[in-house]
């Protein structure tokens, strides 16, 4: 008798914590994707984005979500099967949240071509699903849980890529990005590059945030700079190129012009990469 009651309670608790996880997912999707849901360029992309590039973005989002789920997830995930389940749930929350918000803001209507509506929702579901996945870690993170955990080197690099992708998705579609690249001189770009790298390193190692990284006292500072910060910056630039390509921002420009826009986008992307190392 007593055993049955306990198992019923357990099932109820599990159900409750799952619903709480869903709620946090919706909250995370809203917090993190609302800026994009309310950006004009993101609505226009719904009918201008090349469909094969959108498909590539949607497909790449799946392994990214699985990796994030494996690390944070809605619940403690220990197996890849659970991580895949959590990733699917996060994608679902992302899609549903995008549909509800886009519809509530009057951006979806019945006389709109189906392909346009679907592309709009699909595009927004990418940041919304990452937001849903981060919702749990941001809003209900229990810091003691990662005690004694070891992150492999490629894990650190992947987290940086996820952070860089999230911020570049926010900023790459906006026209301001290109205007900045057009207005700045090459000297400005060099300053932005140095500033991005310095801030990345400073945020993670120098400023003592919770989740910050430190070195063994006897390790010189440039060890971490070469092993983590510089690869992180290269990843941020690569993600910037990818985001600009997805949103067709590269065009028929000369190499220098492309480099300037990549460096401009690399600034938020590198901060995103640094933030990911602190938060995740």
């Amino acid at each position: 008798m007593a055993g049955e009651t306990t198992s019923a309670d357990d099932a109820k608790n599990e159900f409750n914590s799952f619903v709480t996880g869903l709620g946090r997912g919706v909250a995370g999707a809203l917090f993190l994707a609302l800026p994009m849901l309310m950006t004009m360029e993101m609505w226009y992309l719904g009918f201008t984005i090349a469909r094969e590039r959108l498909l590539l973005l949607l497909l790449l989002n799946i392994p990214l979500l699985i990796l994030l789920a494996h690390r944070i997830g809605f619940e403690e995930t220990f197996t890849w099967r659970e991580a895949i389940r959590d990733a699917i749930i996060a994608y679902g929350i992302g899609i549903v949240t995008s549909v509800i918000v886009l519809a509530a803001l009057g951006l979806l209507h019945a006389d709109m071509p189906v392909s346009e509506a679907v592309a709009k929702i699909a595009l927004q579901s990418v940041p919304a699903s990452i937001g849903a996945m981060l919702g749990r870690s941001q809003l209900g993170h229990d810091d003691t849980e990662d005690d004694g955990k070891e992150t492999p080197y490629h894990g650190e690099l992947l987290m940086m890529a996820a952070g860089a992708l999230f911020l570049s998705l926010n900023i790459a579609p906006t026209d301001e990005m290109m205007v900045l690249a057009y207005k700045m001189s090459i000297w400005h770009a060099i300053v932005v590059t140095v500033l991005s790298i310095a801030l990345m390193h400073g945020f993670v190692y120098a400023v003592s945030f919770i989740g910050g990284h430190e070195l063994e006292p006897e390790t010189p500072w440039w060890h971490a700079f070469v092993r983590f910060t510089l690869p992180g910056y290269v990843i941020a630039l690569a993600i910037s190129i990818f985001a600009l390509w997805i949103f067709e921002r590269l065009g028929d420009s000369s190499a220098v012009e492309i480099m300037l826009s990549v460096i401009v986008l690399g600034f938020p992307a590198s901060l995103g990469a640094a933030a990911a190392r602190l938060i995740l």
Partner: peptide, 11 residues
């Protein structure tokens, strides 16, 4: 590789 302990990570 990075070790995490008490919210701090150590390379």
């Amino acid at each position: 590789m990075t070790k995490s302990d008490q919210g701090r990570h150590r390379e």
